[in-house]
Design a protein around this nucleic acid. Structure first.
Lengths: 141, 141
DNA sequence: GCATATCGCTTGCACAATGCAAGTTAATTG
DNA sequence: CAATTAACTTGCATTGTGCAAGCGATATGC
C-alpha cells in the first residue's frame, strides 16, 4: 500500500489537497453510497450500478479509511460482514456533493428525480442539515 | 483520442455524470486556474505549481474543450499563443469549487489565506456571484 | 533579414494504475 | 456438515501517467 505523507503533497492549495485524496472516479461514488443511499457493506458498494472492480473497491475503501473519511467495524449481527460508515470529516463533504448534484442537474441529463433536485436547489443548507441529522441519528442508535 | 459518448456512461447518477468528465486529479486544477488565478494559456497552466506533465495537460485541455467546459481561441496579440477560457457550463462549477475549498479549509492544513476563507464561508453565494461577474466582465471586454 | 528564443504542443518509453476472472478464507445457512 | 455468502487477494492483460526529448510555427533581437 502506498503512503500519502504530507510531504508528498503537490501543493497546499485547498482544491489540490482535496483532489489528492478524492480525485479519482471511484472514491466519491463510495462516499455518495454511504451518504445518500444507505449502502454500508462491500457487496452493497460492489452492486451500486457503476460496476467497480473488486480490487479497486478494496483499495479505495482502505484509502478512504486511511484518510479518516470512513471507518470500518464488524457487523454485530453477522461476523462475515463489515459495516463502513462516514466519519465527521466524511459527512462534512455533503455541501460539496450537493453542489456536484446540482451542477449536473443544471447542465447534463441525469436520472435524478426532479422533485428531489428542486427541494435541494431551493434550500441547500436545509438539505445538508437533514443529511447531517440522519447521519447523527444512525450513529447514536 | 477517445470518445465519451452518452452510451458509455456508467450510470445516470448526477454525481457519476460529473465524475466521468472531471473525476481525475488534474482537470479541476485547470478549472481552478481559469476561475480563480487568471491563468489562461498552456504555459501558465504548466507552471501552476503542481507540476502537470505536458502531454497530460494537452490531453486534459482537449477533454475539457470536448466537454464544453472551456473554449480555445488564438491570442490576437501573439499568434503563437492560445487563450483558454471557461464556458458558461465551466463557470457554473464555481459553487462546487467553493465547497471544495471550504471543506479543505475546515478539515485539512492548507495555504489559503484565512481572510479569503472567512469571507467565502460567510457569504458563499455572494462570493460565487462575484466570480461570475468577473467572468462576465472579462468576456465582454 | 537572419539567428535565436518562445509557445504549444507530440512522441517514445518506462512504470504505475485499472479492469477482469479466478481463487481463498472465515462465517453462516439449510 | 455440505453448500453458500461475504470480503477480500492474486495474476495478468490493457490502459494511463510521468519524464525527457523533439518539432513546427511565430516572434524577438541585432
Amino acid at each position: 500500500m502506498k503512503e500519502k505523507t504530507s510531504s508528498s503533497l503537490r501543493s497546499g492549495c485547498p482544491i489540490n489537497v482535496l483532489l489528492e485524496t478524492l480525485g479519482d472516479t471511484w472514491s466519491l461514488l463510495i462516499v455518495r453510497d454511504l451518504m445518500f443511499f444507505g449502502r454500508s457493506t462491500y457487496n452493497e458498494f460492489l452492486n451500486a450500478g457503476e460496476g467497480i472492480a473488486t480490487n479497486i473497491l478494496s483499495d479505495r475503501l482502505q484509502k478512504l479509511e486511511a484518510a479518516n473519511l470512513i471507518e470500518k467495524r464488524r457487523d454485530p449481527a453477522d461476523a462475515r460482514k463489515f459495516i463502513y460508515r462516514l466519519t465527521a470529516r466524511g459527512i462534512d463533504l455533503a455541501p460539496m456533493l450537493v453542489e456536484m448534484i446540482l451542477w449536473s442537474a443544471r447542465n447534463e441529463q441525469t436520472d435524478a428525480p426532479k422533485e428531489t433536485i428542486k427541494a435541494m436547489a431551493a434550500d441547500r443548507d436545509g438539505f445538508v442539515a437533514k443529511v447531517r441529522e440522519n447521519w447523527q441519528a444512525a450513529r447514536d442508535s
